[in-house]
Write a protein that binds this DNA or RNA. Sequence first.
DNA 1: GATGACCTGTGA
DNA 2: TCACAGGTCATC
Length: 259
Amino acid sequence: MPEILEVEAARAVLEARALEREIASVHAPDTWFLKRGTTPESVTHALLGNEFVAARRRGKSMFVDTANGPVLGLHLGMSGRVIVDDVEAGDPLIYASNQRIEAWHRFGVRFVDGGSFMLRDPRRLGAVELDPDESRLGPDALTLTYKQLDHALDARTAPVKAVLMDQARVAGLGNLLVDESLWRAGVDPVHLPVDLDTDARKNLHRAIRSTVRVLGRRGGSHTGDMPRGPDAVCPRDGTPLQRRTVGGRTTYSCPAHQH
DNA sequence: GATGACCTGTGA
DNA sequence: TCACAGGTCATC
């Protein structure tokens, strides 16, 4: 269930292990997984005999460049994992469904040297696409500047949480990272951007930066300080956390210190 | 902008 | 059996 931190870990595994290896065969058994006109035939044609030369990322989307030109777009959806030669990014213990079930390998390639890259996704909400449109994403959350955040909030009438999760405004933040960031910033998820003054926005920017940096170092989006669950209590002031739906997602926040 | 849909696994 | 899951998309 990847947000930007997990996707970056997956990208790093691809970069470290999957580049400059000739592709011997393409595994694309699930046409549902191939989006926007990409077919098993077209992706096989694009990759066979080719090799990956770079693994890029913007927000939660990955773009793998190939020597012959085509770009392989990858998205992990809610449950996707990248596996190269049986090495996968992140902490496997977090996931109960961590088994090597062949049917969960929705896409992949086998290299001439005998190794492989596989995208495992039990829920099939991930995606593979040739030459994806890379322009529809906002600025990347890992390098988000104050100015970019300020602009992202501009003229929005949705709750600040919904804006932060809108990938066209800021790319990479998901449900957990946004809840943690807002908790750290002391901002109520339903607060409207128009009501956030410069101080509040600077504070929010600092909170987003510290959230992605600290949680990245700890090992993932689930390692935040704000607990989730029916009996969750704010570690800052001991207040029982509030559970709501905001922006269509389950949202936890502290009614005492998030305004 | 909010809602439901997509798909499938896990745990209560 | 049900509610829930770290994402995105079409639809009203």
